[in-house]
Amino acid sequence: MGIGESIKGAVKSKVGEVTDNDQLEAEGDAQQTKGDEETQETKNRAEAKAHEKKADALDEQQDALES
């Protein structure tokens, strides 16, 4: 979703701006913000997963050294 929502929102906002439709422009701005937040959430989840993998690997290394 994220990037697609951002693009659709940007287009909708621009159309609202060009046609002097404040409602459409506001909807587009909101949709674009939602898309940006979804994109950031996806990025944060990927980073968290990478940290979890690193922690798991370090746990395994520690366990091996303690044995």
Rank of each mutant, 00 (worst) to 15 (best):
V11P: 04
D36K: 14
T42I: 11
E66T: 00
G28L: 01
K12A: 04
T33N: 09
K14R: 08
D29M: 03
L58K: 11
G2F: 06
D36E: 15
K12I: 08
A64N: 04
I7A: 02
A26M: 13
I7V: 06
D20E: 15
Q40H: 10
E25G: 04
M1N: 12
T39H: 13
K54V: 02
S13P: 05
K49M: 06
Q62M: 10
G35K: 01
H51I: 13
Q40R: 07
A30E: 12
S67Q: 15
G28Y: 07
D36T: 12
E41Y: 04
G35M: 04
T33D: 14
T42G: 12
K12S: 05
D29Y: 05
A26D: 10
D63M: 09
G16V: 06
A50Y: 07
T39W: 09
Q40I: 10
T42E: 15
T33K: 11
E41W: 02
K43C: 02
E38Q: 15
K54A: 15
G16S: 01
D56Q: 05
L24G: 00
D29H: 13
T19D: 13
E41D: 13
T19I: 07
K8H: 12
E38V: 03
Q31P: 05
N21P: 02
A50V: 02
K14Y: 12
A50F: 07
M1T: 05
S13K: 11
G9M: 12
E60Y: 06
G4P: 08
L65N: 03
E17I: 04
K43L: 11
Q32T: 10
Q31I: 01
K49C: 06
T19R: 05
S67K: 09
Q31L: 13
K53N: 14
V11D: 05
N44F: 00
D59N: 10
I7E: 01
K43Q: 12
V18E: 09
V11N: 11
T39Y: 05
Q23Y: 14
K53Y: 10
A64R: 13
K14I: 09
D56K: 07
N44G: 03
A55S: 06
G16M: 00
V11W: 06
E66F: 08
A55W: 04
K12N: 03
M1H: 12
Q32D: 14
Q32S: 09
K54E: 15
E41S: 13
V15W: 03
A10E: 07
N21I: 00
Q61I: 00
A64W: 10
K54Q: 08
S67A: 14
L65G: 07
A10R: 08
D20P: 00
D59A: 11
E60V: 03
